[in-house]
Design a protein around this nucleic acid. Structure first.
Length: 460
RNA sequence: GGCGCGGUGGCAGAGUGGUUAUGCAGCGGACUGCAACUCCGUGUACGCCGGUUCGAUUCCGACCCGCGCCUCCA
């Protein structure tokens, strides 16, 4: 039985899909005006692991993750760059796909883009207006009337009067209430726009997700996820729009990832303290970054730091070391480790607990190897690779992981030649020369591992 | 101010009303020509104060501290 923390109820609940055996899940994706940062990676990886585990449990998961490809920031950035906004978004979408592929994130089943759903968006706004939940203002904008939805605030636990009293809401003459939000924005002169019953314009930010999720997954679906800062107002507004438009409950389980922090502050675009995925991947292997993200629970805040990435690298190396030189056995039956792994994952996707099981398996492999039990070692290796796959880890050939070319000055051939020279020297009991070569390699980041079968190397 | 989350050993990070998290780092031993890797062993924990309890890090209350959202942000 899988239990999931639901932001709506603020507690873990037994997960029961609407349709047995099937999971319909929507996650808010990127607004494509810049490269993805580590915070995006967190959400990408978190919901990738969730999808993998649900599928591992036998669910048929239909995973939809949208792309916001029209928005104020996109238009501003394109304008600054002096380019057509579709050139910008096209480039950023491609970059995003590259980044997620490197992080081992599987593609969602559908990746709808806002600009491809203008008709659905307009249709939903019409329904909201005719139902008395929205109104066209004099300035050409269409707003959602927040006080028309009694449940407004149920996700973020906010009271409407507090919101209205707060000085930070956008004061807009055209709005009936300060907390009302735009469904449709009238185009400014020269701006890209689409025709609508309310004049030329473009969709507001929140309506696209209501329209796309409903279209792709139905009026009610199982799981809706996203980053921590989308809880309010974005997800709150999605609920208001969707439930008023369809008359049905929008989503059963709301899931939110924790924030990535840098120096005790949230990593965010507005603070400008963000690291893009591609910047980080210049310094660390992608799988190390993924391990770092998966090694803590998806709802917790995590601190980005060099030390933490370095430690993640050491730890992942230990796991790959256990697998090195072993051909995993085939058709290995379920073990107690599989059950312990599942127990952890069943509890709101406790990846930290699941990783502890991975280490237990690695330890067992090493014990088998020590004792020369090759068949058992290969069976345990199969378990480790099988469980690793659910987390999107340990799927590389260990040699590829250890010897990945990181742009160092030595090629694999150079290294092999030096290892040969060292072996000769040691054979002649010229240990000074052998150690000299080992030190020379170490200085260039190459670590040697001696064993009975010979010497292997890795980039450290 | 409103709402929400959290404070675990040197660090990272799970979890539990009484019994080992796990990893990294450290220490001792084995292995090794010496190391590295690996194995075996090992120390240091649950913010503070009350309460409930036979017993609380785990439940309850107060307090202190940190963080997030309340505005575009994953």
């Amino acid at each position: 039985m899988i239990r999931i923390y639901n932001t709506l109820s603020q507690q873990k609940e037994e997960f029961k899909p609407i349709e047995p055996g099937k999971v319909r899940m929507y996650v808010c994706g990127m607004t494509v005006y810049d490269y993805c940062h580590l915070g995006h990676a967190r959400v990408l990886v978190a919901f990738d692991v969730i999808t993998r585990y649900l599928r591992h449990c036998g669910y048929d998961v239909h995973y939809v993750r949208n792309i916001t490809d029209i928005d104020d920031k996109i238009l501003r950035r394109a304008d600054e760059n002096g380019e057509v906004y579709t050139d910008l978004t096209g480039r950023m979408i491609q970059a995003m796909h590259e980044d997620e592929a490197r992080l081992g994130v599987l593609s969602p089943n559908e990746e709808p883009r806002a600009t491809a759903y203008i008709d659905e968006i307009i249709a939903m706004i019409r329904r909201l207006i005719s139902g008395g939940h929205a109104y066209a203002a004099d300035n050409g904008d269409v707003y959602f009337a927040v006080d028309s939805f009694a449940d407004y605030g149920k996700l973020s636990k906010k009271k409407l009067e507090d919101l209205v009293a707060g000085a930070r809401v956008d004061v807009q003459e055209a709005k009936r209430s300060p907390a009302d939000f735009a469904l449709w924005k009238a185009a400014k002169p020269g701006e890209v726009s689409w025709p609508s019953p309310w004049g030329e314009g473009r969709p507001g930010w929140h309506i696209e997700c209501s329209a796309m999720s409903t279209r792709c997954l139905g009026d009610t679906f199982d799981i809706h996820g996203g980053g921590p800062d989308l809880l309010f107002p974005h997800h709150e507004n999605e609920i208001a729009q969707s439930e008023c438009a369809t008359g049905h409950k929008f989503v059963n389980v709301w899931m939110h990832a924790g924030a990535i922090r840098v120096n005790k502050e949230k990593m965010s675009k507005s603070l400008g303290n963000f690291f893009t995925i591609r910047e980080i991947l210049e310094n660390y292997p992608a799988e190390v970054v993924r391990y770092f993200l998966v090694s803590s629970h998806y709802r917790s805040q995590v601190d980005y730091s060099e030390d933490n990435l370095v430690e993640a690298g050491r730890t992942l190396t230990r796991l790959y070391h256990a697998l090195r030189g072993l051909v995993p056995a085939k058709n290995v039956a379920e073990t107690d480790y599989d059950r312990r792994f599942a127990d952890a994952m069943d509890d709101d996707f406790n990846t930290a607990g699941a990783i502890a099981v991975l280490h237990a398996v690695a330890n067992e492999i090493n014990q088998h190897r020590r004792d020369g039990r090759d068949a058992e070692a290969r069976e345990s290796a199969a378990v480790l690779v099988r469980l690793g796959k659910v987390l999107g880890l340990l799927q590389q050939d260990p040699e590829a992981y250890f010897q990945a070319d990181t742009g160092g000055e030595l090629t694999a051939e150079d290294i092999e030649a030096l290892i040969q020279a060292r072996a000769e020297a040691r054979k002649n009991r010229d240990f000074a020369e052998g150690d000299r070569i080992r030190d020379e390699l170490a200085a260039k980041g190459i670590i040697l591992d001696d064993s009975r079968e010979g010497t292997t190397w890795r980039r450290g």
